[in-house]
Design a protein around this nucleic acid. Sequence first.
RNA 1: GCCCGAGUGGCGGAAUGGUAGACGCAAAGGACUUAAAAUCCUUCGGGAGCAAUCCCGUGCCGGUUCGAGUCCGGCCUCGGGCACCA
Length: 827
Amino acid sequence: MKERYDFKTIEPKWQARWAEQNLYTAPDGGGKPKYYCLEMFPYPSGKLHMGHVRNYSIGDVVARYKAMQGFNVLHPMGWDAFGLPAENAAIKYGAVHPAQWTYENIAAMREQLKQLGISYDWDREVATCHPGYYQWTQWLFLLLYKRGLAYKKKAAVNWCPSCATVLANEQVKDGGCERCKTAVEKRELEQWFLKITAYADRLLKDLDKLPGWPDKVKIMQDNWIGRSEGAEITFTIDGLEESMTVFTTRPDTLFGVTYMALAPEHPLVEKLIAGKPQAAAVRALALSVRGQSDLARTATETEKIGLFTGAYGINPVNGEKVPIMAANYVLMEYGTGAVMAVPAHDQRDFEFARKYDLPMRVVIQPAGAELNPDTMTEAYVGAGLMVNSGSFNGMPDSEGIAAVIRYLEEKGWGRGLVNYRLRDWLISRQRYWGAPIPIIYCEQCGIVPVPDADLPVMLPMDVAFTPTGRSPLEDQAGFVNTVCPACGGPARRETDTMDTFMCSSWYYYRYTSPRDTEQPWDPASVRYWLPVDQYIGGVEHAILHLLYSRFFTKVLCDAGLVANEEPFTNLLTQGMVLKDGSKMSKSKGNVVSPEDIVAAYGADTARLFILFAAPPERDLEWSDQGVEGCYRFLNRVWRLVAPLSDSLAGLPLPASGKMPGVNGEMRRMTHVVIKRVTEDVGNRFNFNTAVSAIMELLNAMYQYKEVPELDRDPGVLKEAVETLLVLLAPFAPHITEELWSLTGHGGSVHRMPWPLYDPEAIQEDEVTIVVQINGKVRERLLAPAGAKPDELQELALGQEAIKLLIAGKQVVKVISVPDKLVNIVVK
RNA sequence: GCCCGAGUGGCGGAAUGGUAGACGCAAAGGACUUAAAAUCCUUCGGGAGCAAUCCCGUGCCGGUUCGAGUCCGGCCUCGGGCACCA
């Protein structure tokens, strides 16, 4: 018997055997209930990092646990394989084609995943860059197009004039190009959008149908969608045949408008300033805000800048002329890109009005205080009665909102409206390495979708990656020039590709029938497997990826292609892996490579540590010594179990129920641990405390082995050993499998049913109760387990020591918690 | 700035509103060994005490409660997201 377990031999041996036995293939159907366990698929960057190991270790515990619980488990893996880094690599290293780079990375990472021993059904692997996959991404784009959910409009992109290329937000650092530092410009391009706003209300309301999602994620999505009720109000413009429509959530303050503000890049601005002296200055402001992110523009520390346009708006309700400003704090993307300003009752308007000395009028008066516009130090945003508001005077503002909307609708000046912060989804990318948008432009017929039969629109492989100022696809005459499917005349292909979020919004459907060449998925398979029962991934995806996937699912459900309204029933958002308090990154030089850890300690140790070091939702601090500790633990398991060899075979397990003495204590521990691990893994996902409990079981077994052999019941030891291996199997699958076979068991430990605890075995006769007086611990006493509160109180008050302590005082109240404590409140 | 989290020993963390610090790491002392490694045993929040034991202690300030690490209000610090990284 070896002192240490030989992971270098054991792990590859079992990985090969599991693959031969197809241990992880899941049939569509059968007698067992289904369970779809899914981890977010990785971008094939080249190497697995610790965040991946954490994600997939968590998923593997869930998948293996559910399989042992008797579920038919689908546990697939694939690759989110389109994206910027492959193209960057091609540009940087010249000779490497993004496809080659990507497929080589996939091969390397697949190998690493296999070395971790995760229970994937590799027959279902997908890669989004494979034509057999992106054919269906294109098909789904066309489905959206046919349903009126895809449209084109102008939108700005980041443009580096020096590199002559479009930049992703990530490639813009401090307003300059990441590579050459040149100031980034904005360029307006015709781009494709998906109408996710049409689903805003359902995406919001259906969050209530997701009790298995963390509240924080639901709150973030709720805020992201940003529903607000209010009114759209149209102001005419003095002396011009133009009008200006604003959105406000506070129509009750309409009489308090003292100026209006437009986003500087608003198309109306040009008409207002035409021929006026301030025209040049306003245009300069428009140019400067275009280069800024919304983030920078709306930050309160950013100075609010505004310029008078020279024009006046006319308030429909009182005919007042108010100046129209162009202001950097108004966003073109939100609402109508124009606001009515009520400085007395909106903080941003207040600050702006103070800075530019604009007038202020109080129209909501709180009870008890008299607001004075000259002495106010901040806007009053609370409740009150309407004043200075014509016929509405004296009305509470809460009623005023609806009343003003009714009035505006009667007069035709405006209407009640629900506005969302959510914007439509821009999917056009001026990039090569993505799924081509399957659209053809014909001089005669206009926009023509590629017929289903012509899919996929193949990405040409012979492409140069020298920046030319155009997307690489535009220089591919063979790709661009085509014939119109409708009239047969000459036509051009769309050269933009799709946002990779499109590819990742539906991959969990493809896993159900990944090799289907006739349709994106087999409807029967999807009906059987979906929705995903457990989805696991980084919290950084809490908004975009999860919202887009929910949107896709709702469209597919409306189209009758899937039966589920939501894609993911339960969601677990895992924290990051840190080293020395910050995220592992090459630039910080604090990266710990999973390869090195697996080579030095084996996959079981790496997985166990990462599950033990922190609860899954929290960030995890990497510790080399902590890894050592887990390795020691597995060796302790090995040294206890391996020498037993097949000495336990044939022994009967103890009968259920209570047992006296040391055997009873051992048996009690075994069953307490079954209970704790089952609750920690099954209900709470507290894998760290589950591992702790298994460690306690092992410690108890070592102590039990110290008991003279005559006093021990070998069946109790057998039960403890089997329990230890079965409970540990999802965490450390290789060593447990090896020990399972060493101790004379046939079959795989991963096919064992998850154990049930024996409630009688863990029952205690007596428990220690704490007696407190006025919340301070005064005495401990033994009480029958499960005693009722009344009985406990009687017992405590009957104690001589307690009687002495409370003598001469008045007992106000006695509180007792069964099996815990009695608190006596005295005066 | 806006939205969402998290702060507990030397460290990672544990604790249905009920004995704060389970489990693990590190450290110190000891056993075994010619020696080292490995392994095993003991101690391990701070303070007082010979001891039984007592007092203090969960980022800060306040509140609710017989009782708060946990609930509520207000701060501070750190982290995630902010729409073309995925």
